[in-house]
Design a protein around this nucleic acid. Structure first.
Length: 299
DNA sequence: CTTCGACCTGTATTG
DNA sequence: CGGTCCAGGTCGAAA
């Protein structure tokens, strides 16, 4: 059992359970999860997390994973721009962005289109059980996220058995592409958000990755903290609370159920990033959580 | 550029 | 108990 003390605010539950990452489970009063090829068991007490793991270097892994070096207070002060987000920040104080492995993140969000969080978890769980490596820890079984090369060799019919539906072909083709072009993730890291999003969603063979999922990949696994993924929740939030930021001439998103065109997406993204600034991604995460919370209360 | 429908699946909501 | 809708969107076709 090792300890990691955060100097600034940190909340393990919010950070692991807010829909950034999908392969942590709460068992026996402890968060269990797999990163790369190791199992981690995490508990929080005040600003200390207690770590039990198969990873001998788990402290450093956790520091990277939870963005230990981020100046949280500074980031919060940068994005605390209006009463609505201030409320969200208060409700979810200690929520942090997570730094995921790029392929794990890509696979997760390939599963995320047009579905809900519990289903995303199931899809990833099925994929890991069928194609990942089994790990044993605390007499429990865990499975690694399957590698690009494993999934590139998988039969489409076996992927479909994992209940991923029409996403199977996207997963297969993206796995083939990443397996053969793994340098792409390094290339993206030195690009700016706009170009990286364009590259991921348009110009490389990442089928199933549009602008929203590209933004998630860039925010959660490429350190692009300005990335502001716009999903249905965030779109509703913008419509309700940030409509005043929009140019009424540009804002023609009246019909509720229609999804954003890429042109509209890029416009809204630019507006929100201009507003929230270089840490817009943190703002997005608070707004995302706030929407889920208020949703529960109004039901 | 936009609009439209199709798309797997599981749960919740209707009637 | 069966239809229907919706959930962290994307793709391809059509005008």
């Amino acid at each position: 059992m090792k300890k990691l003390k955060f100097q600034q605010q940190f909340n393990l539950n919010y950070s692991l359970n807010c829909g950034q990452t999908f392969n942590w489970t709460n068992q026996d009063d402890c968060w269990y999860g797999v990163i790369k090829n190791d199992v981690y068991c995490l508990k929080q007490d005040d600003n200390v997390i207690y770590i039990d793991s198969t990873d001998s270097d788990c402290i450093n892994t956790m520091k990277k994973y939870f963005r230990y070096q981020d100046n949280y207070e500074l980031i919060i002060s940068c994005i605390s721009l209006d009463p609505f987000i201030q409320t969200a920040i208060q409700n979810f104080s200690g929520l942090r962005l997570i730094r995921q492995d790029p392929w794990e993140c890509t696979l997760s969000y390939l599963c995320a289109s047009n579905t809900n969080i519990s289903n995303i978890r199931k899809m990833l769980d099925n994929l890991s059980k069928k194609f990942g490596n089994r790990l044993t820890f605390h007499d429990k079984q865990f499975f690694t996220i399957p590698s690009p090369s494993t999934l590139s060799n998988a039969y489409l019919s076996d992927l479909i058995k994992c209940k991923v539906g029409y996403r199977a072909k996207y997963i297969k083709r993206s796995a083939v592409f990443i397996d053969q072009n793994s340098y792409i993730f390094d290339e993206l890291k030195i690009m700016n958000l706009i170009n990286a999003r364009k590259k991921l969603s348009d110009s490389c063979e990442m089928f199933g990755v549009g602008p929203k999922i590209a933004d998630c990949i860039l925010l959660f696994s490429h350190d692009m903290l300005d990335s502001f993924p716009i999903d249905t929740r965030i779109l509703q939030t913008i419509k309700q609370y940030y409509r005043y930021l929009l140019d009424p001439e540009m804002y023609k998103i009246q019909n509720d159920k229609s999804t954003l065109t890429s042109y509209q997406y890029e416009y809204l993204s630019k507006i929100m990033i201009d507003y929230f600034g270089p840490y817009a991604g943190y703002a997005q995460e608070f707004l995302y959580c706030q929407y889920g919370l208020s949703d529960k209360f109004t039901r």
